[in-house]
C-alpha cells in the first residue's frame, strides 16, 4: 500500500543511544501517563518497568554484551509501536477502532473499541496494551504523537532525545540516512535496517550495533503484511455460502420430490 502522501517515520539508531530514557519520560509527560510501580527482575534487561504497559508507550530496553565473561558493551533499544505500513492490529479490529492515518501513524479511537483484545494477540511486536485495572479499560500504545504532528511539531520523544538516537522525518529520507550510516561505518553497525521490509515495512526504522533479535525483536518475521494471512479465509466465505446453499438446496428439493412421489405412489396403490 504505497500512499500518495509521504509517510513520516522515526529512525532509531541504538549506537547513539546513551540509555538516558528521556524519551520514556517525555512520552509520559506529553501523554499524561501515570507512573508505574516497578520491581527489579532477573533475566534479560535491567530496564524498569520490564515491559510496555497501558501507561508506558515506549521503553528503553537494556542489554549487556558479554564476551569471555567480561562486559564488553551496553546496548539500548527503544521499544514502541513500530507503526506498520500494513498494520495487523488495524486489520483485525472488527469495529475499525485502530486506523492507519494517511501519512502513516497508526492511531486508535477509544469510543469505538469493544475491548476484544484481538489487536493485542495479532500484533507481531506485541505492542497494544490493555488497562487491566480499569473499569472502563482502553487499548493503549504509542500513536506517534499524532496530535503533535498535526500541529506541525515533532514527536515528543524525538524532541527530547539529546543524542539524535531518535530522528524524525519522512520514511524515504530516513531510509537513505540509515543506508548511509550502515555503509560508511560497516564495523559499527549490524548490517540490517529493521523495519524496512519486516511485516511489509514499518514506519519505525531501527539500526543497531548487534542483531536486535538478541534483545527481543521478534525472530523470522515475514516480509508479507500479516493481514494477507486471513484474507483468503475471509474471501472464501461468499463462494462457500453460495456453493453450500446451492448444494443443500438441491438435496432438499430432491429428497422432497422423492417423498412426494413415494406418497403419491402409496395413494395410487391404495386406490
Amino acid at each position: 500500500m504505497e500512499n500518495k502522501t509521504e509517510q513520516i517515520a522515526l529512525l532509531l539508531d541504538n549506537t547513539k543511544c546513551i540509555g538516558c530514557r528521556g524519551c520514556q519520560t517525555s512520552c509520559k509527560q506529553w501523554n499524561n501517563l501515570s507512573s508505574e510501580k516497578t520491581e527489579f527482575f532477573g533475566g534479560a534487561g535491567y530496564q524498569n518497568p520490564a515491559n510496555l504497559s497501558g501507561s508506558t508507550y515506549t521503553l528503553v530496553k537494556f542489554h549487556e554484551v558479554v564476551e569471555d565473561d567480561k562486559l564488553k558493551d551496553w546496548v539500548f533499544w527503544k521499544t514502541q509501536c513500530q507503526h506498520c505500513i500494513n498494520p495487523a492490529c488495524a486489520s483485525v479490529c472488527l469495529v475499525g477502532a485502530i486506523q492507519k492515518s494517511e501519512n502513516g501513524p497508526v492511531v486508535w479511537d477509544d469510543s469505538k473499541c469493544i475491548g476484544c483484545r484481538y489487536c493485542m494477540l495479532s500484533c507481531p511486536y506485541n505492542i497494544p496494551k490493555f488497562e487491566w485495572d480499569s473499569v472502563m479499560p482502553q487499548i493503549r500504545k504509542c500513536f506517534l504523537c499524532f496530535d503533535r504532528i498535526e500541529q506541525g511539531q515533532i514527536p515528543s520523544c524525538a524532541k527530547t532525545c539529546p543524542t539524535e538516537a531518535i530522528m524524525y522525518g519522512t520514511r524515504n529520507e530516513l531510509i537513505e540516512i540509515a543506508e548511509d550510516r550502515l555503509s560508511s561505518q560497516p564495523d559499527k553497525y549490524y548490517q540490517h535496517i529493521y523495519g524496512l521490509n519486516e511485516v511489509g515495512g514499518t514506519l519505525i526504522l531501527n539500526i543497531s550495533s548487534i542483531p536486535l533479535e538478541e534483545m527481543g525483536y521478534p525472530k523470522n518475521l515475514t516480509t508479507e503484511p500479516l493481514a494477507s494471512r486471513t484474507a483468503t479465509s475471509i474471501s472464501s466465505i461468499s463462494p462457500v455460502v453460495v456453493g453450500l446453499g446451492a448444494a443443500l438446496g438441491l438435496f432438499a428439493i430432491i429428497t422432497n420430490r422423492k417423498n412426494e412421489i413415494a406418497k403419491q405412489k402409496a395413494k395410487e396403490v391404495l386406490k
Binding site: S91, C93, V95, A97, I114, C116, R117, A227, A231
Partner: peptide, 19 residues
Amino acid sequence: GRPWALYNALFYWNNSSVM
C-alpha cells in the same frame, strides 16, 4: 473489556477482520 460499546459492531464494519 468494553461490553457496553458492543453496539458499535452493528455500525462500524471492518470486513478485513475475522472477528
